[in-house]
Design a protein around this nucleic acid. Structure first.
Lengths: 342, 342
DNA sequence: CTGAAAGCGCTTACAG
DNA sequence: CTGAAAGCGCTTACAG
């Protein structure tokens, strides 16, 4: 039977209101009385009731806004699942969560929505940003001038006043791929990297992590260059063909981004899909299929659900409990999957 | 702004009580009125407020009891963390959660506590069972005769009326180990298994999964027998010594249970810790240490936190929302860790 | 079959 | 500095 404010009030011989003021340090309580109340509360093991507090908060109408770019991509659809769960949880506790999904990358649209949110007095915003000077400025303005806390998710935008970034540690993701590649190739042979767009910062970090770990820990592995598919399956397939021609003894390929299909199909066509070790990213249906067929040896992933769930809940805890994020970076766990634990 | 019962009542021209009875099918509402109310609720997108419901439920004093055997083991200490989080969550919603920790395996003590819980009118119980005919009977009696739902966690006890088991799919865990062993040995060579107690069902399942997957998928690997350490580090070290003598070309060792320390120390002593691939289980500090030192290549784990958190929350949702577990088996995800994502 | 009231634990004005 | 009251959304008796 949890202890209530009322019970503490009775034990201390004061009213509920006084107990509340004392415990929350709201002032207007005689110091010695406050002291006594705090002691009693501690002794009785008082834990405030979420239910009670939530009900009161319903009057304040806490509003959380989410802006998601590239919402049409399979990965973001997974993130959206986590958001919906968090939305329901927050709303059953009396808050409101509004999710705006933007197709593709469109910083202008994001800023429009942010303006709208300010006018409608949203209490906090989570957004998946893109590199844009204006957007950076706006994030800072919201944080500092308007006092509206901002959390970034999926991709980060450095040098801004966002209170937290929720997403993958992309460098570490690349390092993990390197460790696996080292293990399954026996630490020797030629290995290639196939990436997506040359200007994608997340993919570039994966490459950096991969390369540096190979250099440090697997001197027997020879990196034979990095190619870019620009997320095009046809280009990816073409790259594989050329690689196989140029390096007939190729041992492994690390695919940092999309265009997994092109890579795998090209390998299957040349009957090399067992021989050449492939490591990919993200647990998308397309990618899983290739793991099951044996063309991909490992997938490295990030907990997509958590990337949707956490930003909302962090804002909720900040606004509801005044509980700040533990750190500026909230990294998703790096998950390794093969065909046995997919 | 979430929709409330009051708003629906106004829209329907009835009282809150009537709306409540209609939506919950409690009867005592004219059918056509009930129909109309349900339609309005759906149109307005009504979601009941958890806060409101929880507050009312506080009167009923929902009590959940947990009995944890082998509570002193490092793994169970991790499970306990998840339980405490769930306890706090449930209690902040007006329920009560009592956790009883039993050192070692003691079915008699478990049954004593269960009796006590029955007398104190607990509403549901989660327990980590051990094989015991009396305990089985008691689980069935509680479920069927007393109507107190039981969930097993960590280890299961088959052929009983427990509503759900939360824990690892141990067969699949063994298969995953086999898949990794196959990859990192290049699919050939001699591989040994070192287990704990010969009568531990979970470890035996891991062995079964491991063996069958090696046989199916890696014909080049030769299994050179299974040894039992009986959880003794010294015995484990001795086994390794003998194995190395008997099979100088040994390529890999799968350690199903504890006594990882003995295995690794013996390998280090013989300077074989890099050469021989080792796969272990569970993310205990001791095990992690050996991964970092490079003596263990992979650890396969179960989400220990979830094994504590889920049983409590499942009982809570059952008792509070009348929401039954989706399936009788709630398996923890099988997690693969190496030194890059530990 | 329907409604009005009480109360769960908390916070927020407001009165003293 | 302190207390009494109202009200958040819901369910549970109880009265009609």
């Amino acid at each position: 039977m949890p202890v209530t404010l009322q019970q503490i009030a009775e034990a201390a011989g004061v009213s509920r209101g006084t107990v509340d003021r004392a415990l929350k340090d709201r002032g207007r309580v005689r110091p010695e009385v406050a002291e006594k109340i705090k002691n009693i509360a501690k002794e009785m093991g008082y834990q405030p009731s979420l239910a009670g507090r939530a009900l009161v908060m319903a009057k304040r109408n806490l509003k959380i806004g989410i802006i998601m770019q590239s919402a049409q991509t399979p990965f973001m659809v997974q993130v959206y699942e986590g958001m919906k769960a968090a939305k329901q949880e927050v709303e059953s506790l009396g808050g409101t969560v509004e999710i705006f999904r933007v197709d593709g990358v469109d910083a202008g649209r994001v800023m429009e929505i942010m303006q709208e949110m300010k006018e409608q007095e949203y209490s906090g915003i989570a957004l998946s940003p893109s590199e844009d000077t204006m957007l950076k400025k706006m994030i800072n303005q919201f944080s500092e001038e308007y006092g509206i806390p901002i959390i970034t998710f999926n991709s980060d935008i450095e040098d801004t006043k966002r209170i937290c970034f929720v997403g993958q540690n992309t460098i570490q993701s690349g390092r993990t791929a390197a460790g696996l590649m080292g293990e399954i190739t026996g630490g020797k042979g030629e290995v290639a990297v196939i990436s997506g767009h040359i200007s994608n910062p997340a993919l570039n970090n994966r490459i950096r992590g991969f390369q540096s770990e190979i250099l440090e820990s697997f001197p027997g592995i020879q990196l034979v260059g990095t190619k870019y598919s620009y997320d095009d399956e046809w280009v990816a397939a073409k790259i594989v063909e050329e690689l196989l021609e140029q390096y007939p003894d190729l041992k492994g390929i690390y695919v940092t981004g999309t265009a997994v299909k092109g890579v795998c199909e090209a390998l299957v066509k040349q009957e090399k899909e067992r021989e050449i070790k492939v490591i990919g990213n993200d647990f998308l249906d397309e990618n899983k299929k290739w793991v099951e067929r044996g063309a991909i040896n490992f997938l490295i992933g990030q907990d997509s659900y958590m990337q949707g769930y956490e930003p909302v809940m962090m804002l909720f805890h900040l606004l509801f409990d005044d509980e700040k994020p533990e750190s500026v970076y909230r990294y998703a766990e790096i998950v390794i999957k093969n065909r046995y634990n997919l």
